[in-house]
Structures are given as structure tokens and as C-alpha cells.
């Protein structure tokens, strides 16, 4: 393990502060329990995908400085990726995305996610030299989005949905 705090770690910290600040502005849209459940679900989902693709069984990319599991990787799972899930669900509720609009919404978020992934490559947060290609990620985001919506609806069914307020 040769962990050092350099450019890519700063990239993670700055982005996470930015995203978490934005999340704090929309947090009241979600019930506290929904936030906790979605947070744990997201971290588990991302950790599973990351561990499977970056380590065993696929070994297709590396995250941060080397092939070990770094503390900043775990930090990114919680504070970097998770706010995206909340932004996605916030606008899903706000714009009442249904039917054909859902396809457009998923396509739009896929573009945003691919751009952010490309940015992460530029800053050395991700390293695709072991074999992963950026365009392979394109089909993964709509699938992730649909699963996320299904989980959100499942949680709302049991925990109760939050009515959208006018000033949100």
C-alpha cells in the first residue's frame, strides 16, 4: 500500500465538498430514514460494482493511486457518488418524470455521468489502463438509474413519500 495524498485525492475532496453542499440544500425533500436507507443502499451498490470490476473477478480498472483498497476509495463511495443518487431522485420527483420523459431523463443523466467519469479519468481518480473503456459505462448508468428508481419507490411505499413543497 503506497497511499499518498496528492492531486487525485484533492480532486475527490473538493468534488465531495461541492456535491455534499448541494445535497444539503435538497436534503429536506427526503425523509431522514429514506436518506439513511438510500445512503446504505448506494454505498453497497457502488462498493459491489467497484470491488467486482476493479478487483475480483474482473480487474478492469484501478481507482486512485494503486490496486489496493484505499481509504479515499471508501470516502468516495459515501461522499462523492451518493449525492448524485439524491440529485437524480430529487429532479425525478420535481419534474414528475414518467413515460417517454423517463428515457430522456436517463439519457441526460447518462451524459452527465459519462462527462464526470471522463473528468475523473483526467484527474487520475480512475485509471482504465487494465482494460475498461469509457464507452462501456454508457449502458450501466440507465440500468443503475432504473434500479435506483425501483428502490426509491419501494422505500416510499413503506416509509411514505415526501410531498413536494413549493419552495423546494
Amino acid at each position: 500500500m503506497n497511499f499518498k495524498f496528492d492531486g487525485n485525492e484533492w480532486y475527490v475532496v473538493i468534488c465531495s465538498i461541492l456535491f455534499m453542499s448541494c445535497f444539503l440544500m435538497i436534503r429536506k425533500h427526503f425523509r431522514p430514514l429514506t436518506i439513511v436507507f438510500l445512503l446504505i443502499y448506494n454505498v453497497t451498490f457502488i462498493a459491489t460494482i467497484d470491488y467486482s470490476l476493479a478487483a475480483t473477478p474482473f480487474r478492469l480498472y484501478e481507482c486512485l493511486d494503486n490496486e489496493t483498497y484505499e481509504i479515499m476509495g471508501a470516502y468516495a463511495h459515501v461522499f462523492l457518488y451518493t449525492p448524485f443518487a439524491f440529485f437524480f431522485l430529487y429532479y425525478y420527483d420535481k419534474w414528475t418524470v414518467r413515460g417517454i420523459n423517463l428515457l430522456l431523463y436517463l439519457a441526460g443523466w447518462t451524459c452527465v455521468a459519462i462527462f464526470y467519469e471522463w473528468l475523473s479519468l483526467q484527474f487520475g481518480f480512475l485509471d482504465y489502463s487494465p482494460g475498461w473503456k469509457l464507452y462501456w459505462s454508457i449502458p450501466t448508468y440507465p440500468i443503475y438509474g432504473m434500479i435506483l428508481i425501483a428502490v426509491y419507490r419501494f422505500l416510499n411505499r413503506y416509509l411514505g413519500s415526501h410531498p413536494f413543497r413549493q419552495n423546494e
Binding site: T44, A47, T48, A55, Y69, A74, Y158
Partner: peptide, 27 residues
């Protein structure tokens, strides 16, 4: 167990074990 509890504990158990496994195999 309530359905949301099953969902939560499933995620949490998987997350804890995957961290345990990742630290062991990668670090």
C-alpha cells in the same frame, strides 16, 4: 423482519463483508 428491514440488513451485511474481503485480498 419488515420488508424494508430485510432490504437494509441485506445491504449492510453485504457491505461489511465486502469491506472485510477487500481489505484482506487487496491490502
Amino acid at each position: 423482519l419488515h420488508p424494508v428491514e430485510i432490504f437494509l440488513y441485506w445491504c449492510l451485511s453485504s457491505l461489511i463483508f465486502q469491506n472485510y474481503s477487500a481489505i484482506q485480498t487487496m491490502n
